[in-house]
Every structure is written in C-alpha cells, then in structure tokens.
C-alpha cells in the first residue's frame, strides 16, 4: 500500500499543471524511494520525467512497487479542490483501482476527502542514458519563461546558440525576428545570475510550443538548467526541495 503525506498540496498542483498539456495518462510509479513519473507525449517529441523523493514527504510509506495509472486531467480537477497550503495525503491499497486524497486545512478543522479512479496504463519505461552535455546553462526560471514566451510571438522555432559570447536565443519569424543574448553574470550566481559552462559550441533549433509548455515549471523552482549537445535532445531541468522535473525535447533537424 501507499500512504504519502505532503506538507503542501501546492507542489502536486504545480506539477500537474506542468505536465497535463504534454501527457494525457501516465503511471505514477511508487516505491520505497519515492514517486516517479516518466511519460512521452503522443508525437514522441518530448518526454517528461518527475521525481518526488520519499524524504520530501512529511510521512511516506510504500511497501512494494505500485504503479498508479492516472488520467492527468482528472487528477488536475481533484487537486484543484485543494488549497495550496492544505496538507495533502494520498493513499492507495495494493491492487486497488482507487486513489484516495485527503486535504487537511492548515488553520481550521476542515478535512476534505476525494477518490479518483485509477487505470491500467501499458507504457514502456525508457532508459535515459547519462550524457556529457557540451553546454550547461543555468538561469533564473522567470527569465527563461519570458524569453520563450516573447519569441513564441514571432515564430514557431527558436535557435539556441551557446558560444564564448554567451547563450543566444534566436527566432526568425516570417514577419519579424529577434534574438536575446544572455552573458554569464560574473558577480551574480544562480538563482539571480546566469552561469554558462561550455566544452563545445552548440547550435540547435527547437519548437517554442514545447518550451513554453515546459516553462510552466517555473512555479516549482527559481532556477532552470538547460543542457545541450549538438544533435541530441535538449534537457530542461527544474530542481526543487522534494525532487525534480526534467523535460527532454528532440531538436528540429535538416534545412
């Protein structure tokens, strides 16, 4: 069985907001180390990977590995019934087809109980190889959100170029183009500053639609890391106290 007590429902609410438009149904894989989710979008262009560590919960018990197949739309609706600062307890019995959620109000005696149907989801688990990326950029997550939202007004794609100069985001739309250069901030470390590590010049093009979607995770962390190597998927990573959310995005190819 699973019993997990989360100090604030906000974390789960924000996580669901970060993935619900990318993936419809997914397994939350629970084991004694915590809860993991890995899912690819229908078009096999993006993959999201979430980890919530057992140590991030006020109380956590999972006797044996338990996949909780969830419709993310339904889960989002049930979580909307929780206030951000409610304590959130999720429970599931072994082989059960129901997930129960309890929201305990912080400053009153209100206790709300909800149940959600679980589903069998037959999804392959993918092996994500460890990659030595050619470039690693760390920046304020709000800055990344602004850049991808701004450029998505102009065109469908962004070219990300990492060089000695810094990291440049370039959009070349039909009617307008734009580019934003971020230089490494020498006097300011993350979360406020920008750090750039580069072994090799990187030049890759990505769909802005996906990046705008990923940027929703800025509610979970003040810092985002972009990991890039030529011709391999981009890794966009947000770390927070209880775990992380990582997105992989296949680059656009050819001319």
């Amino acid at each position: 069985m699973l019993e997990a007590r989360l100090a604030e429902a906000a974390i789960l609410k924000r996580l669901l907001d970060s993935i619900k438009e990318l993936v419809t149904d997914a397994n939350f894989e629970c084991n004694e180390e915590g809860i993991n989710l890995q899912a690819m979008d229908n078009s096999h262009v993006a993959l999201v990977s979430v980890k919530l560590s057992a140590s991030g919960f006020k109380k956590y018990r999972c006797d044996r590995p338990l996949p909780l197949g969830v419709n993310l739309g339904s889960f989002t609706k049930v979580l909307k019934c929780a206030k951000d600062d409610d304590v959130c307890i999720i429970k599931a019995a072994d082989d059960a087809d129901i997930l129960s959620l309890t929201y305990e109000a912080r400053n009153s005696d209100r206790i709300a109980e909800y149940e959600m149907k679980l589903m069998d989801i037959d999804a392959d688990t993918l092996n994500i190889p460890d990659t030595d990326y050619d470039a690693r950029v760390s920046m304020p997550s709000a800055e990344f959100t602004r850049i991808v939202r701004d450029l998505s007004q102009l065109g469908e794609s962004v070219r990300i170029e990492v060089s000695k100069e810094g990291v440049r985001f370039i959009s070349d739309g039909e009617a307008a183009n734009g580019n934003i250069l971020l230089r490494q901030t020498d006097d300011d470390a993350p979360p406020e500053g920008v750090t750039i590590e580069m072994n090799q010049h990187v030049n890759l093009t990505f769909s802005l639609k996906y990046l705008v979607n990923f940027a929703k995770s800025s509610t979970l962390s003040n810092v985002v890391q972009l990991m890039l190597s030529n011709d391999v998927p981009l890794l966009v990573s947000y770390d927070f106290n209880q775990g992380h959310i990582r997105y992989y995005l296949a680059p656009k190819i050819g001319d």
């Binding site: 096999h44 092996n127 656009k252 190819i253 001319d255």
Partner: peptide
Amino acid sequence: SKQQGRLDGFFSVK
C-alpha cells in the same frame, strides 16, 4: 525549413 525530430532512437526501452 527544419523538420521536427523525434526522441525514438535516443532512448531505448528498458
């Protein structure tokens, strides 16, 4: 213009 690539091929099924 560039075509959208896919993740298949980068990640193997466990």
